[in-house]
């Protein structure tokens, strides 16, 4: 026990002058500049997410509108092949796109480390 105390006393004395200080005078400013960049990146990221949601909703509405228009025209004989062949494919494609993009957007928007 006493030996340990001797060691401790010896080392405390030995290392008393060994504390270092940050030798770079511009360190604080550099870090704050990096922090500001980080903050701006965070906000531009949020803006991009908002735009992504906007265009996703616009795209989804246009897709639905297109399907309605196509099904309306399918009643006319010259466009009957569209309703029989292309319309089901188009609907499947739009549904898949909506599901995939919605999943990605939800993931990005509600990511916990969005800070």
């Amino acid at each position: 026990m006493e030996k340990n105390n001797n060691h401790d006393r010896f080392f405390r004395e030995l290392l008393s002058d060994s504390s270092r200080e940050m030798p770079f005078s511009d360190f604080e400013d550099e870090v704050m500049a990096e922090i500001r960049m980080e903050y701006e990146k965070k906000f531009s990221g949020r803006r991009n997410i908002r735009l992504s949601w906007l265009f996703f909703i616009l795209g989804m509405l246009s897709g639905i509108a297109t399907v309605f228009v196509m099904s309306f025209y399918s009643a006319n004989q010259p466009f009957a092949f569209i309703s029989d062949n292309l319309l089901p494919v188009g609907i499947v494609f739009i549904c898949l796109t909506i599901i995939l993009f919605a999943e990605k957007l939800v993931k990005i928007s509600f990511r916990r480390d969005n800070h």
Binding site: F27, V31, E38, H115
Partner: peptide, 22 residues
């Protein structure tokens, strides 16, 4: 090494800022 130490501390501050909410 003073330069490596500075870089590590700088990176640590950025990480701390990012994770401060947690």
């Amino acid at each position: 090494n003073e330069f490596d130490a500075r870089d590590a501390v700088q990176e640590a501050y950025i990480i701390a800022f990012r994770k401060l909410g947690k």
